[in-house]
Design a binder for these strands. Structure first.
Lengths: 145, 145
DNA sequence: TATTGTTATACTCTATAACTATA
DNA sequence: TATAGTTATAGAGTATAACAATA
């Protein structure tokens, strides 16, 4: 009996999974390089990427998959570098929204450009193929809500 | 003129990229949950996943995208938990191979099972669709060498 | 009572630089 | 000289627990 897990067993699903894992890993390494180039720690870069819109500290922790208490120091350091600022929520005085500054928006754009390099590689597909891929991926990973 | 980067602009490629980024993020969060459930720090879990085969300290650092010097402490702590061991290379006495112990192999399997959950979601596709997806992904991300 | 955010603590991660042993 | 690995150091990430302010 094989000691290999579901994730590494052969077969069609296994092959698809293998290539997806490779994409995940390449994306992770590209992300780490991009963060290092911009002199950001991975968690800081992750936070910037999440901040397309202002987020509460709480929400940001959820998006980053880390504890609430970490975000305090994380945002402190980003704020010290002038990349984000805190502002109070008008609805709930307990809540603080984290907002990108202009410099933060620029840094975020630089991150996106570097991390988004593989978008170009989608050019290897014809338009029809791109449409097919989109539909297949949507079936595999439908939006949650 | 739009302030959006290549990575977030609309269009077909943009849509494919958006869904890929969602997959990347979900994978990351699943990975973090899996590591936490097994009481491993993300870097430790990442190292275990890389250790399908024995790797030199140097190679392991490359795979993890971190500096060589970090791997010393990382492997120290994994070894202290009985998950890996060091052994000398017969070819080059400078090199140390990192090898999983039996306990390390079991923990790695548990990680793979948790991280590999989406393999099941590939069942939403027919076999033909899985084959199509595989071919399209191979075109986008061909193997390096 | 429950939730948001902060602080304190302890441990881990990470890069840099300097070092040893080997090639 | 160059490379593999270690050590020392400093700054950052991380979870846990306890706390203040607000809901």
């Amino acid at each position: 009996m094989s000691m290999e897990s579901t994730a590494t067993r052969g077969g069609l699903r296994g092959e698809v999974w293998a290539i997806l894992r490779r994409l995940f890993r390449e994306h992770r390494l590209r992300f780490l390089s991009a963060a290092a180039e911009l002199d950001l720690h991975p968690a800081q870069a992750g936070a910037l990427l999440q901040l397309a819109e202002p987020l509460s500290m709480n929400h940001l922790a959820g998006e980053l998959g880390c504890d609430n208490s970490n975000v305090t120091g994380l945002v402190d350091r980003l704020a010290a570098r002038g990349l984000v600022s805190r502002r109070e929520s008008p609805d709930d005085r307990r809540v603080r929204q984290v907002v990108l500054t202009d410099a933060g928006r620029r840094t975020r754009e630089q991150l996106l450009q570097r991390v988004g390099a593989p978008v170009g590689e989608l050019g290897r597909l014809t338009e029809d193929e791109q449409r097919q891929l989109l539909e297949l991926l949507r079936k595999v990973a439908p939006e949650e809500r």
